[in-house]
Amino acid sequence: MGDVNRSLVLEGSEQGYATTRLDALLGWARKYSLFSYPFITACCGMEFMALTSPRFDVSRFGAEVPRFSPRQSDLLWVVGTVSQRQGPVLKRIYEQMMAPKWVFAFGTCAASGGFYDNYTTVPGIDKIIPVDVYIPGCPPRPEAVLDGLMLLQDKIQRNERRPSVVKPRFDPAESVHDMVRLRRSAADPRALLPAMREHTKRNVGGSAS
């Protein structure tokens, strides 16, 4: 036990305690124990399932526990299109959650209504409830959602409530252009595979922190 205690003590404070600010401690505790309420209405739900499956494994971020009562959850995932008819339901669910609470707008439809610019769809859930992180994409890739989750954790730690948006780390069109140029430059496409893998690793997989 002595060794365990020693490892928790900050260097230079051998009295056996460490100091921090209360809000920083609370933020640190909150950001790693997010209880999720999935409000899933449409096709983005598939991507939510991918996110929670072992390949992308959202539980690495302490946000894997879904609660199917809004009273027990503090992170509302609005995943998919919200119709006008669902508006009151969404608002009521949000109001039932206990503070502090955070909201994800998962996918373009939840964020802005997407291409459903018509009589039946809410043009973005921020018309009804506050949103902390917008995750655009139709649907967003799980990596984008994990980016959003890290963004939210950062915001929780800093007690920052201004809404923010997940954006790609590089321009996908530019990358496709690169790929096409590379493909056309080679006689045998198989010879390009190592270079393409390296390209993907560098631009997509390699930068997760």
């Binding site: 006008q84 008819r85 508006g87 009151p88 608002k91 802005s112 809410v122 043009p123 973005g124 921020d126 018309k127 009804i128 409830i129 506050p130 980016d147 963004l151 201004r162 809404p163 923010s164 948006v165 997940v166 954006k167 780390r169």
Partner: peptide, 27 residues
């Protein structure tokens, strides 16, 4: 709409659809 939309004053942020985001926004 069945529920009244939030106003920009209440939300504190622009609620209309924004212009495409530039390279210096987000993250």
């Amino acid at each position: 709409p069945l529920v009244e939309y939030r106003t920009e004053d209440e939300a504190g942020v622009p609620l209309n659809k924004l212009e495409p985001f530039g390279a210096d926004e987000g993250m």
